[in-house]
Simulated assay, not measured.
Amino acid sequence: MSSQKWAGVFPAVTTKFTADDRLDIAEMERCFKLQLDAGVHGLIVCGSLGEASTLEPAEKVEVLNTAIRVAGGSVPVLLTVVEGSTRRAQALAEAGAKAGADGFMILPGVPYKSDARETMAHYRAVAKSGGKPVMIYNNPVSYGVDITPAMLGELAADPLFVAVKESSDDVRRVTQIFNAVGDRFQVFTGVDNLALESLAVGAVGWVAGLVCAFPAETVAIYDLMRQGRLAEAVAIYRWFQPLLDLDVSSKLVQNIKLVEALATNSNDRCRAPRLPLVGEERARVEAIVAKALANRPQLPAAKIAAE
């Protein structure tokens, strides 16, 4: 599957656990299928929302295998590579490539805040080990490392780097990337409540979080924007906004898993040290979801042919 076709809605799917803290393969299969049935364009596993920091390497490969099996080649499946050392990241990329990942979404070597030289060396080494197309994940807000447009200009010399997930929380960065490197990369927005704004200025994809609970609405916004049907997209986006805000939080995992539980009859089990929301935090999310479900918009016919 050509990386040049990477565009559209790519859910950063959650990792499901059983009551005894094992991987819940059956529930992941069900939830991944809900995404595919709604028309998403790719799947990204084992990211921040997928609780990567709590997963063992073998578990990451098992989650990847589950997504590949459910996708059946219909959409690309990307494995997130986020490790504290370049060496461990290389090993995971090699394992992911062997398991059949279509590509990788790579993060800096967190939690260390690398400088530009170190960051680019990390990306080049991990990409070479995986040997598959790479989406560069830029999230200076959460990880303290900013992959600037100038750095992207240097990384552009390596054909393995094909896309950028832009999560700097500044929609102006999308335009700055285009001004620096033209159309060299497929630019994805990675901030749920900046998605429509990013698509409006040229982003071709959306690495989404709340899509896990509301896939049809997420895909509809993307499709409508690609068709130039701005008013219809804005109407859905305004309804969606209180939910999308839950993605921009240190407890985005707990928030989104609770929304999933309420909207798709899943569960909100997390792996410790994360614990499901309780008290006022839980009540707040429940109220947001209840209002959203009570006012869920009727979606227009917005499917467009794959580009």
Rank of each mutant, 00 (worst) to 15 (best):
T175L: 13
I136L: 12
S129R: 13
I236M: 08
P300T: 06
A71T: 10
H41C: 04
Q176R: 13
K128E: 15
T119M: 03
V141S: 13
V253S: 05
A235D: 12
T264A: 14
G42K: 08
R229V: 00
F10P: 07
Q298I: 13
L230H: 09
A156S: 14
A220R: 05
F188P: 01
P159G: 06
V234P: 00
P57F: 00
K98N: 12
D268Q: 13
G103V: 10
V285F: 04
G131M: 04
A235Q: 10
G228Y: 10
V219C: 06
A71M: 10
A272L: 14
I106F: 01
E154L: 09
A19N: 06
R238D: 07
A220M: 01
R22P: 00
A19R: 07
A231H: 09
L34A: 13
Y112P: 02
W206D: 09
G109A: 15
S249V: 02
E118K: 00
A233K: 07
L199W: 10
L277E: 11
K165V: 09
S250E: 12
L293F: 11
K251P: 01
E29S: 06
C270K: 02
E56Y: 13
A208Q: 04
G39M: 12
A127Q: 03
V81W: 01
D158V: 12
G228L: 09
A180N: 00
T80A: 15
A203Y: 03
A52V: 15
D170F: 03
L299H: 11
S198N: 10
R271F: 15
R184P: 03
E217R: 11
E217D: 12
E232D: 15
V141P: 01
V81C: 06
G279A: 05
S2N: 14
S48F: 10
A67P: 11
A163K: 04
G109F: 04
K128P: 00
M151H: 08
Q35N: 15
Y123A: 05
A216Q: 15
A89G: 14
V289Q: 02
V278I: 14
K291C: 06
L293C: 10
M1T: 13
E217S: 11
G205P: 02
V248W: 14
L199G: 04
I177W: 00
E59S: 12
K257M: 03
S266N: 08
